[in-house]
């Protein structure tokens, strides 16, 4: 994974590395199971781009904003309308198809296999990183950001409350509640 050079990068390097390794192997196990369930063409409708591109886009989506505990359907909910629009929008269809083709080309060049078959998340991230500035990547990333983090259905999973005025706000619902800070 691409570790950001933020203020924390010098702290707890071992923990960071352990967490990273644990996640990589979990992700690798995930990939092993993908062929049968996760990435079955039925996972989401994608007539416009075909089965392989659909599976690739779903894998890519999970690599862009990886939340291992979120079910595929939440990522598919972002990709489906995109593919739907691509049926009527030739430019968008081309953007998706060509994007997937380029991703596979790069994967072949570097790892001698298709993107979907690259087992380690870190390797796939390397490929994505190289495509980061493309319109294709930014389109997928932008739609995912809105589809995951602006998805009301998911807000409780992230511990975010959303609209509060109709419930009277938090003035009588625990705005001042904190039972740990003084004992830190």
């Amino acid at each position: 994974m691409n570790k950001n050079k933020s203020a924390d990068s010098s702290t707890k390097p071992n923990l960071g590395r352990r967490r990273f390794l644990a996640r990589s192997s979990a992700a690798a196990i995930g990939v092993g199971a993908l062929g049968s369930t996760l990435l079955s063409p039925a996972a989401w409708a994608a007539k416009a781009v075909g089965d392989h591109a659909s599976a690739t886009l779903l894998r890519m989506a999970r690599d862009v904003f990886p939340h291992d505990r979120l079910e595929d359907k939440y990522y598919a909910q972002v990709l489906s309308p995109l593919a739907e629009s691509a049926l009527a929008d030739k430019e968008l269809a081309a953007l998706l198809k060509d994007g997937v083709a380029t991703l596979d080309e790069q994967a072949q060049k570097v790892f001698s296999k298709a993107y979907l078959d690259v087992a380690s998340e870190a390797d796939r991230v390397t490929l994505l990183k190289a495509m980061q500035d493309t319109a294709f990547f930014q389109k997928i990333k932008g739609d995912l950001m809105m589809g995951i983090y602006n998805n009301q259905e998911l807000w409780p999973r992230f511990g975010y409350g959303g609209s509060a005025w109709e419930k009277g706000g938090y003035v009588n619902r625990g705005y001042d509640k904190n039972d740990w800070i003084e004992e830190v």
């Binding site: 994974m1 950001n4 980061q132 950001m145 511990g159 975010y160 959303g162």
Partner: peptide, 29 residues
Amino acid sequence: GLPFMSAFLKPGKGGWGRELADSLANYDN
């Protein structure tokens, strides 16, 4: 809120990946 945090925690084209996702998963903390 979570929607704006996802846009501003690491803004720009490079705002994606596991480190960012992990932080956002920790939004409530």
